[in-house]
Nucleic acid binder design. Structure first.
Lengths: 242, 242
DNA sequence: AGAAATTTTGACCAGTTGGAAAAATGTTAG
DNA sequence: CTAACATTTTTCCAACTGGTCAAAATTTCT
């Protein structure tokens, strides 16, 4: 039964070419892999794009490989050839995400003028919510679930960055160029208000109706937030209470 | 073992009492069902409580009946006796939620003083984020997924309420008791900033560290938000630009 | 062209999932 | 007590899940 080399009488059925079966594509995480062909990069990008779509809607557990494969336009085993585990895809998305996600805050420059700096930080964040809503939702989904797969990144990279920028904000306040306020909560409030437009998009759409949802919506939001963060809602003449 | 009075010659194996099998508990949705016994209400509450825990963390698709049953301390079929479908549980949670969720906004009274009204609306919302974080996350999860199961409630009840309160805000602005600003985005920004503390709790915790996370955190947030919504971040002496 | 490597497919699998059926076990009113 | 009802447990299932594997198809390299 085992393939004994029967020199003389080949059964003539089934070519039996002992082609070596294809191994899995070298894992991206491990150290010294080939430079990746163009096809490989393209396919991986298609998968990541599809995965972003699906993960951002359903969260990690709610998303299925089949779904992702279908959106990516390929078969499940084929997808698994490029990413041997579901978690792998998610991890790739998340770490790429965190990088772009923190970029706007990184750009806030302590040597700049506080008010314009904050103003443009808000605008950049709002632009991201408009242009990359799926990334925002992916992030939100992960947060809602307790960030099981990125908690350490949050606790290190994100936290350090926020600490650093909180110091910058504090310095500005000391200099009297910014109202005194808790810098951490200040940052939170910028995140919250801007990401809201991506994460709660359905709600925003439903409330604003079709009219107020077109081109102008983004500008309306930007204008409002600018006003809020600059002057608040108290009428112009009002004095601070205490 | 079973107390069969063996009159003649019962086969002695398996009593075969043809007791009618128990049907499912009458669905809550349908019209004329019994008033529900105390036990039924208790069990349903246990299930809903457990379901809230699980759904709020994993979303609808990510949550499993087994998980919910385990948290509720009962078997899966037993749970299914009270709620014949997974969706049923979710629907119950969501509709109960929306009611409480909108209550704070409903309370905003047009006959009151604008500034204190808004201030206490913010505080109530923040208290809800603190006291009912799971409800907040359940809601957020649903939104992230496109609100497939409550879109109509959003489009009707929520929208109407917001429209109504937007009018109130506008009137206040006309009277000069409130700065002119888009009332819809104003409401969004209150939702966003307050719910952020429930939905992104992990992140907030990670960033603030263990120190700034205890008793004081809520008060810090409340104080900051109050300042933000009242006066914004521009330093005290600054004039509005345009 | 032909060998070698890469990519794709189809068949398959074990574990999980939502749910059904029915039997077993209470509980309660007469 | 006991029939009728309510609740719980046991058993089971079909569909779906993440993932494997080897063969087949395709591309790449010489």
């Amino acid at each position: 039964m085992p393939p004994n080399k029967v020199k003389s009488a080949e059964p003539a059925v089934l070519p039996v070419r002992p082609r070596r079966s294809g191994g899995r594509l070298a894992a991206a995480g491990a150290g010294k892999s080939r430079p990746l062909t163009r096809i490989q990069r393209e396919k991986q990008d298609m998968i990541l794009e599809a995965a972003l779509e699906v993960f951002s809607m359903h969260g990690f557990r709610g998303a299925t490989i089949d779904q992702i494969a279908e959106v990516a336009g390929m078969s499940k085993p084929n997808l698994l050839y490029y990413f041997p585990r579901k978690e792998e895809i998610h991890r790739r998305l998340i770490s790429a995400l965190l990088h772009t996600w923190l970029a706007p805050l990184k750009e806030m420059d302590e040597r700049g003028d506080p008010i314009p700096e904050i103003r443009s930080y808000i605008r950049r964040k709002l632009e991201m919510a408009r242009d990359y809503p799926r990334e925002s939702r992916l992030f939100a989904n992960e947060m809602l679930q307790g960030a099981p797969r990125i908690i350490e990144m949050i606790e290190v990279d994100l936290r350090n960055l926020v600490d650093e920028k909180a110091q910058v904000l504090l310095a500005w306040m000391e200099e009297g160029k910014l109202a005194h306020a808790d810098p951490y909560h200040l940052i939170f409030s910028i995140w919250a208000t801007t990401q809201h437009y991506a994460d709660f998009d359905v709600q925003v759409r439903a409330v604003l109706g079709p009219d107020r949802n077109g081109e102008g919506r983004f500008e309306d939001a930007a204008r409002y937030l600018e006003h809020l963060f600059m002057h608040g809602l108290a009428p112009r003449g009002a004095r601070a209470a205490g």
